[in-house]
Amino acid sequence: MRPSDSVWQGNFGYWQNSFIHSNLLIIGYTAWKGFQSFGRGVVICGVDTQVTHSTTTKFDLVPFTLQFIPSDLIGFYWRSRQDCKDILQSSNSSIISSIIPAVATYSPYQDIVLVLFTQRLSATRYANLEKAEPQIEVNFLHNLKITPPDCYEQVYKRWEEFQPSLMP
């Protein structure tokens, strides 16, 4: 699904590519750590709705959450999402049907299956904004130049630099 227009990073309304590029090391770290612990799965990234607000620039810090969902829990995870209930009722099966085959065939050593969705992380900060509808996008990051094991190694070596981003 392509979200509505925004001017974040001057990317003609499509903020996801720039977001992924800016946060690839942390996303790859999460993918590799999850794979080592649970096997194949998907990285779920909840991004604060501020990225769709027109005043956000490429210099703003964008709050987000990351988690790894093992392949056998993907269906359960999507059915249990309370904050995305409305959008998932209509697209639940299409989201799951696009994720499951990708998770079954991706190379965890070279690829990442990533689901980005917008959510309100700081309700008081954005109380004046209209309630944004959740937007969900499935990304298959294939043949990455910086592989998930490389991302893990870089984040591990520079832990102090990344630790605040990995805290809930």
Rank of each mutant, 00 (worst) to 15 (best):
R2L: 10
D5N: 13
S6C: 07
W8V: 06
W8D: 10
Q9H: 10
G10A: 04
Q16P: 04
N17G: 02
F19D: 09
I20P: 02
H21G: 08
N23R: 04
N23C: 06
N23Y: 05
L24W: 15
L25E: 14
G28A: 06
T30Y: 15
A31C: 04
G34Q: 08
S37A: 14
G41C: 06
I44G: 05
V47Q: 14
D48N: 12
Q50Y: 12
Q50T: 14
T52K: 11
T52V: 11
S54P: 14
S54H: 11
T55S: 05
T56R: 09
F59V: 01
V62I: 11
V62M: 14
P63G: 02
P63C: 03
T65L: 08
L66M: 15
L66C: 00
L66F: 04
G75M: 15
G75R: 12
R79G: 04
Q82W: 05
I87T: 02
S91W: 15
S91A: 00
S91D: 15
N92K: 05
N92F: 05
N92S: 12
S93E: 13
S93N: 09
I95Y: 08
I95P: 10
I96D: 00
I99A: 00
V103F: 01
Y106Q: 01
P108G: 05
D111W: 00
I112V: 13
I112G: 03
V113D: 07
L116A: 04
Q119L: 13
Q119A: 02
S122L: 03
A123L: 13
R125A: 15
R125W: 09
Y126D: 01
A127M: 08
A127F: 12
N128V: 07
E130M: 07
E133N: 10
K145W: 12
I146W: 13
C151H: 06
E153G: 04
K157G: 06
R158T: 07
Q163D: 01
P164E: 02
L166A: 00
P168L: 11
